[in-house]
């Protein structure tokens, strides 16, 4: 069933812009990105929008649909009443480039700061061995498609530009957690997670988990376990005393602190 959808799209660049109204013909079963493409094809040829796979796997078409951070290609029009106006804006945490396209380089800068895995020498047969139950947790985090919706919705940087310098954000806490849970990695990242990545800025409001299109339990499975690991190292006097008198947590023995 075709109908005319009312859309409001943010158009502009860093010097200014506003929400513009469009009426666009859409079909049942289409998604917001289809409607955007039709606007681009029929009414606004210069509308800037970043997209690639249209299958929820490339993480390119992140935007805010009726104020909610979403992938446009995974937001069905059938979830909205046909009479409703759908408003689409760029992600509001990152500097805007033009229309729906933002500059997400903050995330790449944070990725560069992240110490990479350092693995021990291979076994005699040239292989490395890990048990499945030891890598299950990290594999959940590997589902991340780097759409940066979690980074966009995190109020620590969304509402406070100044925190960007000291805060890596939920996408990278996934990575810090993945490496800290890695069965072979030889680096202890707990200190840098607190001091460099700014884990303490997170106040567990779970918006990152709410918006994750891959359904990764970012807060419960990555951020909170990392907070507990940081507490082991920095805030727990019993663990400190245990280390001093030689009752060591042997599971971390092969790790060197950065």
């Amino acid at each position: 069933m075709a109908y005319t959808l009312k859309m409001r799209l943010w158009r502009g660049d860093r010097s200014g812009g506003d929400l513009q109204d469009f009426d666009v013909e859409v079909e049942a079963g289409e998604v917001v990105l289809d409607a955007i493409h039709r606007v681009q094809a029929t009414q606004a040829g210069d509308l800037a929008v970043r997209w690639n796979c249209k299958a929820g796997k490339c993480g390119s078409c992140s935007a805010e649909v009726n104020g909610r951070p979403r992938l446009m290609c995974m937001t069905r029009l059938s979830d909205y009443d046909p009479s409703e106006t759908i408003t689409v804006t760029p992600m509001r945490t990152f500097p805007v480039i033009r229309d729906l396209v933002t500059d997400v380089s903050y995330n790449y800068e944070k990725a560069k700061e992240l110490p990479y895995a350092e693995l021990p020498p291979r076994d005699a047969d040239g292989k490395r061995r890990m048990m499945q139950e030891d890598v299950d947790r990290g594999q959940e985090f590997r589902k991340c498609i780097e759409c940066f919706l979690c980074q966009n919705t995190c109020h620590v940087v969304r509402d406070h530009d100044g925190n960007k310098k000291n805060f890596a954000g939920p996408r990278f806490f996934l990575r810090y957690a993945e490496l800290d849970m890695h069965p072979l990695d030889t680096v202890d990242r707990r200190r840098v997670t607190r001091e460099q990545a700014g884990l303490g800025y997170c106040n567990i409001t779970k918006c990152c988990t709410e918006v994750c299109p891959e359904g990764i339990h970012i807060t419960d499975n990555a951020i909170i376990p990392m907070k507990e690991r940081v507490a082991d190292r920095t805030y727990d006097p019993l663990v400190w005393l245990g280390n001093k008198i030689g009752i060591r947590d042997k599971d971390r023995d092969s790790r060197a602190e950065l």
Binding site: W10, G12, T89, R92, V96, D159, D161
Partner: peptide, 12 residues
């Protein structure tokens, strides 16, 4: 002004 009304953000 910072946050969503900061100078580099989409003006909304």
């Amino acid at each position: 002004t910072t946050g969503v009304h900061g100078p580099t953000r989409a003006r909304i």
